[in-house]
């Protein structure tokens, strides 16, 4: 801060924050720097290493998590911004009615190889189905294009999302 000469700003602006985060249904109180991203806090402060860092600049999707049910990039979200939302990471997907189906479909269709982009793919695919975007293979491809996979599992990912979406549809 150069000069916090406005009383309100002086009292409210913080470089270190006491944050209350809700992640996978659990409450966490942590102290973090204002500049820390949700991704770094999940991994470095909460020990939730399922969410992955692939680029740290919003260009690969490996860090995708849900905030209030919407898929977002945790590398471009400051932890402070997530304070008022409910965060769901890949670790929470096993409890998620759609996420669980997506996980099973990815294994069945082999929608993964090295597995590093997979947590982001799982979370993103879950949201993609809930958004109603999994209406066709072409729509799935577009909706899943924010999650890069260098092993090239894309055709299998499309098959997995298609199959999980079909199960969701039937229910």
């Amino acid at each position: 801060m150069r000069s916090a000469d406005t009383p309100f700003v002086r009292s409210a602006a913080r470089t270190d924050l006491d944050l209350h985060l809700r992640v996978n249904g659990r409450s966490h109180r942590i102290r973090a720097e204002a500049r820390e991203t949700l991704l770094d806090v999940l991994r470095e402060r909460l020990g939730l290493f399922g969410t992955k860092k692939g680029c740290d600049h919003g260009q690969c999707g490996a860090c995708t998590v849900l905030v209030d049910g919407r898929r977002v990039l945790s590398c471009l979200t400051l932890a402070a911004q997530a304070e008022h939302g409910a965060v769901t990471t890949v670790e929470g997907m096993v409890e998620h009615p759609v996420g669980r189906l997506v996980q099973a479909a990815f294994v069945a269709e082999d929608g993964l190889q090295c597995g590093y982009c997979t947590p982001g793919q799982i979370v993103s695919a879950t949201a993609c189905i809930l958004e109603g975007a999994a209406t066709s293979d072409e729509a799935i491809r577009e909706a899943m294009s924010g999650n890069l996979c260098r092993c090239g599992a894309y055709p299998n990912i499309v098959a997995a999302v298609r199959s999980a979406a079909a199960v969701v549809e039937r229910r």
């Binding site: 801060m1 150069r2 000069s3 916090a4 000469d5 406005t6 309100f8 700003v9 409210a12 602006a13 913080r14 470089t15 924050l17 720097e33 204002a34 500049r35 400051l78 402070a80 911004q81």
Partner: peptide, 27 residues
């Protein structure tokens, strides 16, 4: 990222006060 401060504005007026400071930017 450089060490920086964060402020959650709860009103337009608060935001404007804060943004009037040099070095601040809206998020």
């Amino acid at each position: 990222m450089n060490r920086l401060a964060y402020l959650r504005a709860s009103s337009l007026e608060e935001a404007k006060q804060a943004l009037a400071l040099p070095g601040s930017i809206a998020l």
